[in-house]
Design a protein around this nucleic acid. Sequence first.
DNA 1: CCGATAAAGTACCGTACGGTACGGTTCCGC
DNA 2: GCGGAACCGTACCGTACGGTACTTTATCGG
Lengths: 213, 213
Amino acid sequence: MSVQLPDMPEFTPRQNAVLEQALKLLVSGGEKALTTSGLARAANCSKESLYKWFGDRDGLLAAMIAYQASKVRTAERSGGRLTADLLREHLEVFGRDLLEVLSGDVSLALNRLAVGQASREGSKLGTLLIEHGRRQIDRRAIGLMDAGRRAGLLRFEDADSAYHTLYGLIVSDLHVRMLLGEPGLKDNARQAKKAVAAFLVLHGLDTNSEGGN
Amino acid sequence: MSVQLPDMPEFTPRQNAVLEQALKLLVSGGEKALTTSGLARAANCSKESLYKWFGDRDGLLAAMIAYQASKVRTAERSGGRLTADLLREHLEVFGRDLLEVLSGDVSLALNRLAVGQASREGSKLGTLLIEHGRRQIDRRAIGLMDAGRRAGLLRFEDADSAYHTLYGLIVSDLHVRMLLGEPGLKDNARQAKKAVAAFLVLHGLDTNSEGGN
DNA sequence: CCGATAAAGTACCGTACGGTACGGTTCCGC
DNA sequence: GCGGAACCGTACCGTACGGTACTTTATCGG
């Protein structure tokens, strides 16, 4: 037996192209539009190949999540000295990136898919999404937290708890509203700025340059 | 044409019983378990009646949301003088109630249903859920905000914005995680306490009795 | 040049669902 | 007692999907 090695890109280029088309179908019309026949037709492949590659429909869905996660790479910026303004800037960039990711149509489609599957027992899709899709951005935020504390710019007891506070301030109920189909999206930059300002009031050490809009 | 009057309970008792059974099916097995045949069998009614009462399947889903919303009644506590400790207490109760509602199995099932339907055009289910399900609790929170400001205990420019901050602090990503099927739920009371403490740091006027765990 | 492997395309099968139609039963107004 | 309305139970229909089998085509090692 051969386990998936990290250098083995999990799928062949052909399979990646099929998964890309699957994501396109999912984004365009939701889960109902993602049928095996439709995907085979759209991707110019045979249903038999789909079942040979991914096992069954659930395997295809899991492969789509893994494929999408493999595409996302966070910048993981981590330069030298960290000043208060630099930390604020990094936090705001993080907030904008987070909102951008969450409001992306592929992300929304995959989250809707996983939420829809969450009722069935043994879904694993939700866990997969949380693990693959969030770990990257979570690690980036936790890194930012720790760097801020090490530089004497942030104070908190638990980095994870502080991160959840930041997350809540940034996202609030926007994610669920978007998942429910609400189109009107507030300005990401403005929302991130506000959230970071509040976060720094809670967990920052200096109070200068406060009250930005 | 006859509009729905508030005293007209929207549905007959028999229909309410059927909707109750429909919610039960939805909670137990997700959307896939909610078939017209299955509901007719479980509720001892005929499919023909279902279609006569609710039009089609979407009408049934909308009726389920309306029915569930009609059951939820927030206490809308609003006594006399408001002190700092009383405001904090009310806010914490609100936070606990909010988390309790969001983590309820019926709420989760309906939200999953609406999210799953959100991809299809003309869903209206998501809007319905937000309107019917959230308006009550939102109004209660906004009322609390305004009362706090009128009593000189809170400061903010926009009550809606302040409420969203409170919401984010309380809920963070818990709602989405639960929608995705994550079972482990933190302690509601502890989470509410923490969130309210942070909220009062941001928008409260006095800083005494701070730092409770 | 040849055998083999992979994959496309198509046809097929079983099932299950949404929606409709029909016969039988209960209940209510008259 | 009677006619009709509401409703239950069941059978039925068309469709569409997940999954499988088969035929044909292409690619590639020897």
